[in-house]
Nucleic acid binder design. Sequence first.
DNA 1: ATGGTCGGAGCCCGA
Length: 265
Amino acid sequence: MKIATWNINSVRLRMPLVAHFLKTAAPDILCLQETKCRDAEFPMKDFTSLGYNHVEINGQKGYHGVAVASKKPLRLIEKRDFCEKGDARHISVEAEGEGGPITLHNFYVPAGGDEPDVEINPKFAHKLSFLDEMKAWGENGAAKGRVAMVGDLNIAPLEHDVWSHKQLLKVVSHTPVEVEKLSAVFQAGKWIDAMRHFVPADEKLYTWWSYRAADWAASNRGRRLDHILVSEGLGGALKKLDVLTEARGWERPSDHVPVIIELSE
DNA sequence: ATGGTCGGAGCCCGA
């Protein structure tokens, strides 16, 4: 079973890229973040015409928004309102794996603004609160059984998840306080970092490159903001990882690229 | 060299 996650930065604008991706990579399930449209505006027919007949969405006007599209049936579990702000940042579904049902959580964690200081930046405070709530959610059994958690977590936790550890220590996405809170989330659910299961921690690994670089590939100042975590119950099923870096070079690209995990069950 | 670019909404905000 192939599960993909991709921050699409407007699903309506980039539906041609999504279609190309679904035709060529052919994941069983695609999790999207930053769909940026209300549920009624979601391009449902484009997905069904590509054979992805089962789509669950949690959208809102203009901002955020997550969706899960699948070839096989999904059962909607929940659209959880972390931090109770009414943001569309989570959706969970049950999917049919070869070894039994899999629970799948799709997250879009707040980016957190520019200043890594909760006193002056409420967006950063929101990000940290969101992570605290994810930790409690994991402690309360979210990772029990066969569970995967994917999405744009907006944090690059390891030194080699960013192009320069030293230069990014005070940049939101790689500050020690965020990294510690994300580590606490991972520990609370005993989540396994599926990407780093395949790529050693001392190797650079990115999923996002800023739009602001004149030449994203030449400067290669990336960050690993997108993640796939699996519960202990799925740890033995990890089969293959693919980070589709080339998608950053597509025409009118998202600033994030798809990450695909293959599970043997 | 402390900027640079996107998307959506609606002439700025969030990333």
